[in-house]
Design a protein around this nucleic acid. Structure first.
Lengths: 246, 246
DNA sequence: CGACACTTTGACTGTAGTCAATGTAAGTGG
DNA sequence: CCACTTACATTGACTACAGTCAAAGTGTCG
């Protein structure tokens, strides 16, 4: 929360990029990457800042290099729902449609690698392998969205909170966390406030807080500070989440 | 519910196909289509039959030519959530992944145009325009899934029921319905039972039924029969749905 | 006509929401 | 350094919306 969106984005340096092979860029050869490098600009966005408004037409796409981005939808009376959470090396932006269907905000301080819409869509048309990678990403996002629909429509508050913590514990390696060898023990920082968690799992702040407390008194989690959670045995947390599906 | 899945699928006839230009096939030239035609087989599936199990690895994809297909996810204790509803000319199947992430069932009698996985994935690799079309479809499905997350997480039972009816009214032209010139007046048949509607909008049967009754007594809808609904003024229904977003 | 599946309605319950107060931690200025 | 502010989180008391359990109603098909 120190600096706002940096004013002088600098040329990206793909050679030293931490998400080079995991992000969509992984689909490109060295020569193709060199061209992408020409249109890529690093940009820092501080926590709470809007990245893509749902009112304007965004003129860029981005890879998430660091931090967490939340995608939210809002009803006329202010009720909000987080419909997606992006971690490195996820891709941000709705290709082939000019109106953004949601608001993208930095949930933490975020590092982006941005591409202008025009130049990037041009590259998509030229390099089918790039479009293929984006397509695979989108299929994975759709699978996640549908998992979340099951959570929102059918899980109890307790299961929702446990499922949320489990999801963060599993994705946290991408934003830095520690865990034991056998992965039973996990410690991580929550990228969201209680209010944001509530908006993600379709509850109120109070209900989220109550179930955090319940999980703590039941010994399933330890709350080191508001944002720092330790899970002694992730399998026990998973039981509380009612391990999805058949 | 008359016939089960037909035993002798016949060669598709793309020339007379009702979804030729709207389905993914629309991305193909006549020559390319001729090749797709070779691997396409028409198949009828009766209401209630499973099309793709979430336990087996499906070996085909399909275009929905007629009828409605529901995609469901189930928790260990039997709670269900419908995570997608496919109408003509939607595409059914998860490309590039062998395990199906959900169960696909015929909600009504359904006509499919099926392609073997191997042959179709081969064509995708050869024809980037086909992959592009599938990608655009998937982006639209993702947008819909996120709209539905807002409904599941943040809308009241009344709003959920109204939103569901509104969605059906808007997509019903693809499964046959009548409406007035200015589109205010709409009459359609529901492709789902009350139990299925409940599983789609995250409620119980009883709550769905109560809110149908409420909308009827308020004059927002007329219930001609369990499955047949008339909406005298769709704008009034839309008000009850709390027209999404900002 | 009778059986069955589905839907509606009623009475009651319980989970999560609402409203309000208190607690906690980080940051600011006298 | 300590009062004060501010933002965020927790806890408590009460409420209400949707869920549960049960019965009655409706429609379809043999």
């Amino acid at each position: 929360m120190t600096n706002t969106s940096s004013e002088t984005p600098e040329l990206a340096r793909c050679g030293t990029c931490s998400v080079r092979h995991k992000a969509v860029c992984g689909a490109l050869s060295d020569a193709e990457l060199a061209r992408l490098n020409q249109i890529a600009r690093t940009r820092m966005v501080s926590s709470g800042q809007t990245i893509i408004s749902d009112e304007a037409e965004p003129d860029f796409f981005a890879n998430i290099v660091g931090g967490v981005v939340k995608l939210t939808k809002t009803l006329a009376d202010g009720r909000q729902q987080i419909v997606g959470l992006l971690f490195p090396p996820d891709f941000l932006g709705r290709t082939f449609r000019h109106e953004a269907p949601y608001l993208a905000e930095a949930a933490t301080n975020v590092e982006l690698c941005c591409f202008s819409r025009q130049a990037f869509e041009g590259m998509i048309k030229e390099y089918p392998s790039l479009e293929h990678r984006l397509f695979e990403n989108t299929l994975d996002e759709l699978d996640s969205a549908r998992d979340w629909m099951l959570l929102l429509g059918r899980k109890t508050a307790q299961e929702k909170v446990a499922s949320f913590l489990l999801m963060i514990a599993r994705r946290a390696p991408n934003i830095g966390c520690s865990h034991s060898e056998e992965l039973k023990f996990v410690r991580f920082s929550l990228p969201l406030s209680r209010a944001e968690i509530a908006d993600y799992i379709g509850l109120t702040i109070e209900t989220v807080s109550r179930h955090f407390t319940k999980l703590r008194t039941d010994g399933v989690i330890q709350i080191e500070s508001n944002r720092d959670i330790t899970v002694p045995d992730i399998d026990i947390l998973a039981e509380r989440a009612d391990l999805d599906d058949i």
